Simulated scan of single mutants.
Amino acid sequence: MTVAITGGFGFLGWHTACRLRALHQEEPVRLGREDFADAGTLGAKLADVDRIIHIAGLNRAASDEAVEQGNIVPAEALATAVDALGRPVDVVFANSVQADIDNAYGRGKARAAELLGNAVRFAGGHFADLLLPNLFGEHGRPGYNSFVATFVHEVLAGRTPTVSGDRNLPLLHAQDAAAALIAALGSDVRHVVKAEEIGIGEVLALLQEFHECYSTRGEVPDLSTPMRGNLFNTYRAAAFPDMWPIVSEVHADRRGDLFETVRTHGGTSMSFISTTLPGQKRGEHYHLRKVERFFVVKGEAEIALRRLLTDEVVRFRLSGSTPGFVDMPTMWVHNITNVGESDLVTLFWSDQLLEPANPDQYPEQVELNASLG
């Protein structure tokens, strides 16, 4: 069965597509604004689709009317397309907890749910209406997707955002939202997706803690809770690739050189060392949650990374003559290649112990046109 994601190139759409690829080996049909330009285009894209996750909408705009219509119009177009298909299609709607509140965004979301639900049920399909709380995660847009993205942007710039009206609110990582949307496919439900309550000021304090710890020497902060880990990965994604690589301070004496590779503040972690022959490559995978560091101890290496579902490749050269390291952002495919003439010695560190049954490691090549083998 084929899944389509409306808003598939946006923040939550990208996270959902990443999760479908990693855990379900599914390549969804990702629909953007241009696919809603006319009924014929949308209908053609949905011709072979059996399930739809509807995320497309508008969070902010110049006027309340634009926000309200920005959520109703895509839902109307999708409802019309479902009707035109003439067969059952299952739809999951990424709604908002504000749908029960009388504001522009809430009214738009509520009307979108009504339009879509009627069309899907009339066609004989299942309709799941999931009310999502405040979302955050890797590659959110400052000033649009989340206050967390805005805070991260400001903290990285060395500024301190102002917190007005500090209060607790439910906060959900985009991967957890994506998991709920995928799990609801084929069901008839309407419910609020549960999230952890956390204070706005507490979020800012955590991001400032991470920045102080991580931005100069790459020290890994306390990641002892899922919220800390998710916020740290959000911060790391925004810091990448500008802060890399980091060159370690070398302490030399008559015995040789000593340098730190990883300094952590709490939590469970593991490290290991590999040797790689000239011309050989390691990696070619990505992670959804794991914090991972590649530290080149000896030899010459190229580290290549590509953000999942995009084409551009970021490259770093590291040398054992100037020991340094690069951290792998979540949902970035990565590898390390020995580009020298002698053995490459690399130390790898992860914040998680390896669980063979659930390794959080998904194979994919960095180079899209690379041959297998």
Rank of each mutant, 00 (worst) to 15 (best):
I246S: 02
F240I: 08
E209K: 12
F259P: 00
G266H: 01
R228E: 02
E209M: 07
F272M: 05
W244M: 14
G279T: 00
M243I: 12
S269F: 12
R236E: 09
S274D: 11
V220Y: 02
G266L: 05
S274P: 01
P226F: 04
N230G: 02
A238V: 07
T275W: 00
A239C: 04
R255N: 08
Y235P: 07
G218L: 10
R217F: 05
I273A: 05
E249W: 08
R228D: 05
F259Q: 01
Q208G: 08
F210V: 15
R263Q: 11
N230D: 15
R228L: 04
T275L: 05
F272T: 05
R236K: 15
K281I: 05
L258R: 15
E249Y: 07
D222L: 07
N233C: 14
L223F: 13
Q280T: 03
A252I: 03
L258Y: 00
M243G: 05
S248C: 06
P226T: 13
R236A: 08
F210L: 08
G279N: 00
E209S: 14
M227T: 15
D222R: 08
M243V: 08
G266P: 03
T264G: 05
Y214D: 12
R254Y: 00
P245A: 10
T234V: 13
F210Y: 15
S274A: 00
A239R: 09
S248A: 11
D257M: 03
C213Q: 14
S269W: 08
R255W: 07
R263P: 00
E212V: 15
Q208F: 09
E219N: 14
T264Y: 09
H211S: 14
D257T: 02
R254A: 10
T261Y: 01
V247S: 06
F272K: 00
V250W: 06
V247T: 12
H211C: 11
L223H: 12
T261V: 05
A237L: 10
G279H: 01
G279R: 03
V262H: 01
F232I: 09
T264P: 00
D253R: 03
V247M: 04
R263E: 05
R217Q: 07
E209Y: 14
G279W: 00
T225Y: 02
E209F: 07
